[in-house]
Design a protein around this nucleic acid. Structure first.
Lengths: 338, 338
DNA sequence: AACGTTACCGGAAACGTTTACAATAATTAA
DNA sequence: TTAATTATTGTAAACGTTTCCGGTAACGTT
């Protein structure tokens, strides 16, 4: 492996001259700069970013921690983030945690050791120790979700998220406006923040319309197709009066939908169904799922931009960006006649 | 930021002692080791992986370069790779290239500067310059695809891939066995290696059965749902005698399927359809796509394992792992009666 | 008692850069 | 012509570790 010293020796100049040529520093004659640059090409030299990082105290790397890159929601967020990050000369090191808190902690400390310049995180609800770690860190971090009230009181961190509550509220409202009163809820994992916010939106909307919410109308599942199938089966067995279901995400909705049709239910004739996410698959003509859209890629973009802003000006106040959702009317809900 | 020196001074020992405690080196008394470890906790010290990397000439990072993390195929490969890599103490820095060769080169050189310990790449067909770069590199790399014959003659690199040719051949064979002779082909992008291998499998199978292959039966598209719709529309307009279509991947097949049903074609009654990938969505009851399964996650796993093997023993001969596919019979193909 | 061995520790070099500073050469101003 | 400035270069310290090497102390062996 060639170093800057080899180049310097070979060309009969000093290492600082080579360094200056590489970083187009003003203090160098154009002529020598050209000479050095040519020598570098010829001698096939690659700079060592590690040595550079060490002295500059800047790694040009950003850590990205998400539950599961395989989830179409996160993969698009990751894409959005990587896009603006790499445009700004940063590399991203990523890790899947599956919301396993031990893995999350391990990941966080690895990234701290690696001295990343910033962190984009979507962790499960934080425990005491995690909050401690985060508070000790002096590198910028932005969360890909809102803070729980417990976290909010102990942490001072930027976030970008979608207004899950409003989105869920409007989805439920849509069903109510269509005349539904027996509305089931297919929930995500208990300890996903968006899951509980969406549940709250659903609950509050029912309450605001004096519709009693029943235990048996709610089942918490997970966030993939298979879990949607299972959950909807459970839901239907708990209450066969249901006229509609709000699924907390599209994967769940699609899985549930699949279960319904294979079990001879008609959608929307027997059961209305609304999802959350607006995945590309949801618009397929067989599915044509009414859902609430969230700007996945924009979330990634914004998170990255916000992080860069903080990196460039550490004195910036923590900021919370809340993106809006949009109801997409398609074919899985119908007006209830009475 | 605390350093090992601060710890040493604080505890009245030398830096080497602290270092020994951290790396549980044998040459240290258990007692002092405990003392140091406690001090480290108390003083809230985080090791600096950058400094460590510099001296050890080992970054513990692996570069992963793929076209698009949003593609369900690649996201699962990425998951599979990250899994075994992080289990072995490596972090992964990833980049999306969209098969843009300039971006690929930029990505490669960034990762070389970062001194990653290994590289997992899925590049577009290599040009002269890229091959040059690869040949100059002395870090282990494994490709997520087979080599073109041009590359093979100039490069000496490990690969893990699926037997696209055989998979495509068997898919076509399946259609032929069902009595089809007018078989359309929905291709992926021209410069994706798997795309052309699948095309070859299709072509050779036709030839082996003395079925003439027609220009008008083939349209090259891309690899997402939208492109599938467009491509199948074109295909149907070019030849309305078609009784079946082999789509080079499931996204294309699903998009095409969608176009067919919205245009009043029945699948499989009017048109038989077979895909490639076996995405989770393909097994949904509406779609129920007959397809060729490829072990996405295993590909990622194997690539990572192979890379680690090479890293641990650089003298290892380059190896090509070829995984097999499996035909999944579902509901989108029917026997042609005559 | 003298020696060799082992266990443990500290000093200092090294990794490959950047950068502050000093030094020299070239240019301008007076 | 000389002093003062500017342009260009080189020297060396620094970044935070690991690790080689030498040294001391404790121990066991003869």
């Amino acid at each position: 492996m060639k170093t800057i010293k080899d180049i310097a020796k070979e060309l009969g100049v000093s290492v600082s001259t080579v360094s200056r040529a590489l970083n187009n520093h003003p203090d160098i004659k154009d002529e020598t700069k050209q000479k050095v640059l040519e020598g570098i090409k010829k001698l096939n030299y690659t700079p060592n970013a590690i040595a550079r990082s060490l002295i500059q105290k800047k790694s040009n790397m950003i850590g990205l921690m998400i539950p599961d890159i395989t989830d179409p929601f996160f993969s698009e967020v990751a894409l959005g983030a990587e896009e603006v990050l790499s445009d700004n000369g940063f590399q991203v090191v990523y890790s899947n945690t599956f919301l396993n808190i031990e893995k999350e902690k391990y990941c966080l400390s690895s990234m701290m050791e690696r001295k990343v310049d910033g962190l984009i995180l979507k962790p499960s609800p934080l425990d005491e120790e995690f909050i401690e770690m985060l508070n000790r860190i002096d590198i910028p971090v932005v969360f890909l979700r809102g803070l729980t009230s417990y976290e909010e009181s102990r942490l001072d961190i930027s976030t970008v998220d979608v207004n899950h509550y409003r989105g869920a509220y409007s989805a439920t409202q849509y069903l109510v406006d269509l005349g539904h009163r027996e509305i089931g809820f297919l929930g995500m994992s208990k300890n996903s923040s968006e899951g509980s916010e969406r549940l709250n939106g659903y609950l509050d909307c029912l309450r605001d319309h004096d519709i009693p919410s029943k235990e048996s109308n709610i089942v918490m599942a997970g966030s993939n197709i298979e879990q949607g199938k299972i959950a909807v089966a459970k839901l239907m067995s708990q209450n066969n009066q249901l006229t509609s279901i709000f699924a907390a995400n599209d994967l769940l909705a699609i899985g549930g939908f699949d279960w319904l049709v294979t079990n001879k239910y008609q959608v929307p004739e027997d059961i209305s169904l609304i999802g959350f996410d607006n995945l590309e698959f949801s618009s397929l003509s067989w599915i044509n799922l009414t859902t609430v859209d969230q700007p996945r890629k924009t979330i990634g973009n914004q998170a990255a931009k916000l992080l860069l802003d903080i990196i460039n000006d550490k004195s910036l106040e923590p900021k919370s960006i809340l993106l809006e959702t949009k109801l997409i009317e398609r074919n899985t809900c119908r007006r209830l006649l009475n």
